[in-house]
């Protein structure tokens, strides 16, 4: 049996379907631009207040707006493939450049929040699954209910009121307050200090979700026949729970981590706005204020790209954990 061939093949298939999805996002963008009321140039360039007729004519030519619709799609796709997501008039910069400068902070925020939520959530879920009527278990239930019901931006504001205003422990907003003269370590510490509240806000929502998921999944697994087998073999409690049960209970968590990434980005847009975190989210918020359509469309496309990449990564991880996928 050649072990790697099926994996490679299915990864290739996955990548093909990712490309298809991204293509669909672009086509959708294009359709929206044309279906929207007003001049498509406005949608591509943003608020046209400052645009001269010459510029507009030039843009029409660039985007092929004087040609038939199907050719316009081709021009649009061709531009994107060359890394041209349009031009933001407000910033007077290519959208790609704008986005590139904002990715870092967003990725930092999202990964910190999501990984903490998954790790802490799994631990909470695993412990509460073993004692279903304990205080911890009730805490998980209440937490997940509250986390599902509270608007994430409001949680952020409440945390600011408590932990920045009433008890000034953390900064209210921004990503750093250093003036560029501090050492690298000092800068990192400063960023970490600023990161706590936004990451906590975003993380709480997903902590609520993952602790409940881990609890449900663990309860289900603990009732499985193979857990009875493991106990009948005389294995220690630790081995039964952490070796035999946890490895199986983690599977749905990995699946959801991939599926939910799009929503995590959505959450990040709101949280970044609350904390003025200089990432893609605040850029999106600003582009709404300025009716900067090309930037918003670019962020949408780029976020979709992040989601599919994340999907691919969780898929690969899943293959490593669950041997049933490899061969079937």
């Amino acid at each position: 049996m050649v072990k790697s061939a099926p994996v490679v093949k299915s990864v290739l298939r996955k990548i093909a379907s990712i490309l298809l999805l991204l293509l669909a996002v672009l086509v959708l963008n294009f359709v929206l631009i044309y279906a929207a009321p007003g001049d498509p140039v406005e949608a591509l360039v943003g608020e046209m207040g400052g645009a001269t007729p010459e510029l507009i004519a030039e843009l029409r030519a660039t985007y092929g707006l004087d040609r038939p619709l199907w050719q316009q799609i081709g021009v649009y796709l061709g531009n994107v493939v060359q890394g041209n997501l349009g031009h933001s008039l407000y910033y007077d910069q290519p959208v790609t450049t704008l986005i590139a400068s904002r990715i870092g902070p967003t990725l930092l925020l999202i990964t910190t929040a999501l990984f903490s939520a998954i790790i802490v959530g799994t631990i909470l879920g695993v412990f509460s699954a073993q004692r279903r009527n304990s205080t911890l278990s009730h805490f998980v239930t209440v937490l997940s209910l509250a986390g599902f019901s509270a608007p994430v931006f409001w949680i952020g504001i409440m945390l600011i009121l408590i932990l920045s205003v009433s008890f000034p422990i953390f900064p209210i907003s921004g990503m750093s307050s250093s003036d560029g003269t501090t050492s690298t370590l000092g800068y990192a510490m400063d960023v970490a200090h600023h990161l706590v509240l936004p990451a906590l806000t975003l993380g709480l929502i997903y902590l609520a979700f993952y602790s409940r998921l881990a609890r449900t999944s663990m309860i289900e697994v603990l009732e499985a026949d193979y857990i009875r087998t493991a106990r009948a073999k005389g294995l220690s409690r630790r081995s039964v729970v952490y070796k035999h049960a946890l490895r199986n209970a983690i599977l749905p968590i990995v699946t959801f981590a991939g599926l939910q990434f799009g929503q995590v980005i959505s959450g990040a847009v709101l949280v970044e706005t609350v904390f003025a975190w200089p990432g893609l989210g605040t850029l999106a918020f600003d582009s709404i204020l300025r009716r900067d359509t090309p930037t918003l469309l670019g962020i949408l496309f780029f976020s979709s790209l992040m989601v599919v990449v994340m999907n691919l990564l969780t898929d690969l991880l899943y293959r490593r954990i669950d041997p049933r996928i490899k061969t079937s």
Partner: peptide, 21 residues
């Protein structure tokens, strides 16, 4: 369905609402 699942839902809704008032 998979396509709409991948689409970052809030951003997409933002685009739609902004373009269509």
């Amino acid at each position: 369905t998979e396509f709409f699942q991948v689409l970052p839902n809030l951003l997409f809704a933002m685009v739609v609402v902004m373009l269509f008032s």
